[in-house]
């Protein structure tokens, strides 16, 4: 490095429009690479440094906080139309480090690292003592509720048989005793009415995803299930853009306890590996 050309970063306000543009590019990157769980939205920009980049451009080194929305990542609803998950619903936040390159007025992500975590039980209880907390996704009641709900949905369906992709979140409600679950599904090449062996059904080449919300209520001598599924338009599987830098890492959805690692057989490989991991 020639003497006299010390590397200096530009100090920018966290709420500067240029910083915000870089942060929004980062959030867009998160949502386009997370193929499990929920879309996240920008909550706060914690830190920013803008480094000159040779031979041209600038690199925005960002620390940002995000919040989980109610839109599943497979839901094509634009982020702007997605609601933030409220504290009483047991909110989930993301802490992210990014390096975003600005070159010729365009932002592109060089490096991304995010961890997500649910709000503390104490915080939820302080605001809403009776509100249900997030439940472990492998809880037997949760697994049972998803199974019953998906079976009920397929039984009512005149179209494709839908297979479970992931359980996205769950809450055990004390009164009335019930289990609330949200889960993602995908259409198969079987007709729901004709399925005898679901294991023989394959996901469609042109993926069709759905997102379901269900409540299983325990009753004396049985249980009631209410399930609503939204089926999205078919989505051709496109190659995902990869980070440009050698140090780029994938956003790891497994960091979020509310987002399970999916069944390996059910999810396309592209949704399990979203980028080089260092």
């Amino acid at each position: 490095i020639p003497l006299g050309t010390a590397l200096t970063y530009r100090q920018l306000n966290c709420d500067d429009p240029e910083t915000e543009q870089a942060a929004l590019a980062a959030v867009d990157y998160i949502n386009s690479h997370m193929l499990q769980g929920y879309k996240h939205t920008l909550n706060q920009i914690d830190k920013v440094k803008v480094w000159p980049r040779r031979p041209m451009g600038e690199v925005f080194e960002l620390e940002i906080d995000t919040l989980e929305t109610t839109c599943h990542v497979l839901d094509p609803t634009p982020l702007a139309n997605c609601s933030v998950r409220q504290l009483v619903e047991h909110a989930v936040e993301g802490d992210c480090d990014f390096q975003v390159l600005k070159q010729d007025g365009q932002f592109s992500v060089l490096f991304a690292k995010c961890d997500s975590s649910p709000d503390s039980a104490e915080d939820v209880r302080r605001l809403c003592p009776g509100c249900p907390l997030l439940a472990p996704l492998n809880d037997t009641k949760v697994v049972h509720a998803v199974d019953v709900a998906l079976t009920a949905f397929n039984a009512q369906s005149n179209g494709s048989y839908f297979r479970l992709l992931e359980v996205s979140r769950a809450q055990l409600v004390p009164l009335p005793p019930s289990t609330y679950v949200e889960f993602a599904v995908a259409a198969t090449d079987c007709a729901a009415k004709d399925v005898t062996d679901p294991a023989k059904c394959n996901l469609l080449a042109e993926k069709q995803y759905g997102f379901c919300k269900a409540t299983l209520t325990e009753k004396v001598g049985g249980e009631d299930v209410a399930v609503t599924c939204t089926v999205f338009q078919t989505q051709p599987l496109l190659p995902q853009p990869q980070p440009e830098g050698p140090d780029a890492v994938a956003v790891d959805p497994r960091a979020d306890p509310a987002v399970p690692v999916p069944s390996q057989a059910d999810v396309p490989v592209a949704s399990l590996v979203v980028g080089p991991v260092v």
């Binding site: 010390a6 200096t8 100090q11 706060q44 919040l67 933030v84 504290l87």
Partner: peptide, 27 residues
Amino acid sequence: TVVQPGIAVVPDPALRPCPGRIRYFKV
């Protein structure tokens, strides 16, 4: 004379630009 190459930053102590505003709520 040995000069330490590296970062030369002179932040304005009066400037407190970060963190930025909270858009929703703090978790």
